[in-house]
Design a binder for these strands. Structure first.
Length: 678
DNA sequence: TATAGGCATCCCACCCTATAGAT
DNA sequence: ATCTATAGGGTGGGATGCCT
């Protein structure tokens, strides 16, 4: 391993310091609201009647205010937890606050927007003013006076945490969905409103929420708590802030710190903006700020024995190797002005190492060379290994975001020429790699950003290419995977392949997308399953017939509507409130508005709308309002089936004739001959 | 109080033109 | 012969979900 500096070593040791077991308690409240009315902290007119508490030390308690006066002995007998009953609301709240005061960390799910503000506001309304000694209103959060309040909702909502720490395992940010994804537990749902339910059920429900909330911090040997502490060490931020702010804030804070230890002045954003500010190329996508990655036109066809090589951490490596940082790109030194980024007038400092560049290098090195290695070292006890794994993941979150934040105009050290320099170097090296491959007689059939698909390569030539790139550009090419065969169409970011170990790898195809109806997705996977077995070109002929049979049956079923409604549902995310769609009204928004009218509710952003294509004037309806299969528009589903399958079948020379019109389905039952040309 | 850009797809919203029917 | 309503084609771009 390369020598590391004293500074790096100190940081490394600090990161690896064991995380203390932090005593914490989860809290969840229930407010006795009438049917259909959401309790609002701004107007706390309804009483708090249940406070559930679950502590890391084993405390399990539900405090209940007997507001209906109907609690009987058997209502409060539970094996799992203890119940305390109170005859007035203030006593209930006071008791809860006294208990949680013994814990330095309070855990909630939505505590910033509901539980804590409601307790605060309700107590004040009741005249229990001492509550102010416990709960304090912050700018965008609610704090506890004696310790730390973590709102897990905000933490799990963080995009970096969601995508990089948990690989996007959950999509909806709710206690139920996250619990199912991460701890494989189902949140209990109440079968009705509080008014109609026995107290015993409500109490159990309340406890369940607090228990799940606590477990979200404890699974995998306190993974979440450790992750929070590690990110706090990387970013030099308090736990309160780490759990509420995004990755750009974590990085910003770390970079502040790097300035301080080097005695550098921290520039204001407008000072960076006064530097030379040139954009050299139009972005490919309209509305973007600068040009991004290069995607190679795929060579359509079936390709056997394809080796995929990619640049290891391309953008972080470029940041490090090419000294890119907000202050080194277009630096003030005259002598650096000849050190140009290819095809631009942007120059890069050759006198001083850039802060961000150095940061990228340190993180990349200690992640790969230290923590990743330690996390796989069999000689280290398992628990310790897993801890190193957590550190490695936290570093990955940071390194993955580093290039992105430089190109984000909300970031304190945003500098467009620096971001553009990264992507331009990326485009440059991948082009050079392809040129070299061509020269060596290696056939590149596709590539995206940092990868090259090389058909049937000679091993020695491949080695030479890797060496060439390493020597010439200081970047590491490595083999990512090998496809027994891969099927490319003319579409970029759309292909599938069967790896050498028999895994079907699907990228970007419609059949895989979450907004494809389950029925069509299933047909799609059935076809891919047939293709999985293919070893050579001759076997395609055999499976082709099976595939045609599958499609034929699927069409028949769609026409005769012999499919459960659930299988035809198209799930789409509502990303804004329904009245905020002003330019167009997409189908799912039409359906969402219908649902809002029918149920008298307001749907919130993030809600998954489940639509069915129907024969009404709108052409769509939410599944909740579709009474019978007769309303289903079979024609639309057949069109959808065809366009989904076309992506894989056109290359296999099974042509789906999409333009064909189907006037009336009954009389015009399509035969295969009409649909496929061989 | 959003880390980046590139790409495929569906379909809405709008413009234009061909056509049938009205004047 | 000219005008008008309407259907259908063409197109640009909004929205979503994906890839790296």
């Amino acid at each position: 391993m390369k020598e590391i500096s004293e500074e790096e070593r100190k940081w490394l040791e600090r990161l690896a310091e064991p995380v203390a077991e932090l005593k914490h308690i989860a809290l969840d409240i229930e407010v006795y609201n009438p049917k259909g009315v959401m309790p609002q902290p701004e107007n706390p007119e309804y009483p708090i009647f249940i406070i559930s508490l679950c502590g890391s030390d084993g405390l399990k308690k539900v405090l209940v205010y007997n507001l209906r006066g109907d609690i009987k002995e058997e209502d409060i007998e539970f094996d799992k937890f203890e119940v305390e009953v109170f005859e007035d609301e203030i006593s209930l709240i006071r008791r809860a606050l006294d208990i949680i005061r013994d814990y330095p960390i309070l855990i909630t799910f939505n505590g910033d927007s509901f539980d804590l503000p409601y307790i605060l506001a309700r107590s004040k309304r009741l005249g229990f003013m001492e509550v102010g000694d416990y709960i304090e209103r912050g700018k965008n959060e609610f704090r506890i006076s004696w310790g730390i309040h973590i709102d897990l909702y905000k933490f799990f909502k963080n995009v970096s945490i969601k995508t990089y720490a948990f690989s996007g395992a959950y999509d909806v940010i709710s206690l139920g969905s996250i619990a199912r994804a991460l701890i494989n537990k189902d949140k209990k749902e109440l079968p009705g409103y509080f008014d109609d339910l026995p107290m015993k059920d409500i109490i159990e429900y309340g406890y369940n929420d607090a228990e799940i909330t606590l477990e979200l911090t404890q699974f995998n040997d306190n993974l979440v708590m450790k992750l929070i502490v590690i990110i706090s060490r990387i970013s030099n931020m308090t736990i309160d802030d780490v759990t509420r702010l995004s990755v750009s804030n974590w990085i910003r804070n770390r970079i502040f710190y790097l300035h301080r230890i080097k005695n550098y002045l921290i520039p204001r954003p407008d000072e960076i903006r006064e530097k030379k500010w040139v954009r050299h190329f139009q972005p490919v996508t309209k509305g973007k700020k600068y040009v991004g990655a290069l995607v190679i036109d795929p060579k359509p066809g079936i390709h056997f024995n394809v080796v995929v090589v990619d640049f290891a951490s391309l953008y972080p490596s470029i940041l490090k190797e090419y000294n890119i940082s907000y202050e080194t790109v277009n630096c003030p030194h005259k002598e650096c002005m000849s050190n140009l980024v290819p095809e631009t007038t942007t120059w890069i400092c050759s006198r001083k190492k850039g802060l961000i560049s150095e940061f990228a290098g340190i993180i990349r090195d200690i992640r790969v060379n230290v923590f990743k290695r330690l996390s796989k070292d069999e000689n280290i006890p398992k628990a310790q290994r897993e801890f190193y794994g957590v550190i490695q993941r936290a570093l990955k979150v940071i390194i993955n975001a580093l290039y992105g934040v430089i190109g984000a105009d909300t970031f304190q050290f945003y500098y467009l020429p620096a971001a553009e320099a990264v992507t331009l170097y990326g485009r440059y090296v991948i082009k050079k790699a392809i040129e070299k491959a061509d020269e060596m007689g290696l056939e590149v059939i596709y590539g995206d950003t940092d990868s090259l698909f090389i058909k049937n390569p000679d091993v020695e030539k491949l080695d030479n290419l890797v060496t060439y790139i390493k020597d010439r550009y200081r970047l590491q090419l490595e083999i990512d995977k090998i496809y027994k065969y891969t099927v490319l169409s003319s579409r970029k970011k759309n292909y599938f392949g069967i790896t050498d170990n028999g895994i079907v790898d699907i990228k970007g195809l419609m059949g895989k997308k979450s907004n494809t109806p389950p029925y069509i997705r299933d047909i799609f996977y059935q076809i891919l399953d047939k293709l999985r077995t293919v070893e050579d070109i001759g076997q395609f002929k055999v499976v082709k017939n099976d595939i045609i049979k599958i499609i034929n049956e699927a069409e028949s079923k769609l026409i005769s509507k012999d499919i459960p409604l659930e299988e035809l549902v198209i799930t789409v995310t509502l990303s804004k409130k329904t009245d905020q769609y002003t330019k167009t009204t997409p189908q799912h928004v039409k359906a969402a508005r219908m649902l809002e009218r029918a149920l008298g509710i307001k749907l919130q952003p993030g809600h998954m709308i489940r639509i069915i294509k129907t024969k009404n004037s709108e052409g769509v309806a939410p599944i909740e309002l579709v009474k019978s299969l007769d309303q289903v528009d079979s024609k639309k589903y057949i069109e959808l089936l065809h366009s989904t399958l076309e992506q894989i079948l056109e290359v296999l020379e099974i042509k789906v004739n999409r333009r064909r019109k189907i006037a009336t389905i009954d009389e015009n039952r399509m035969s295969l001959d009409k649909f496929f040309k061989f």
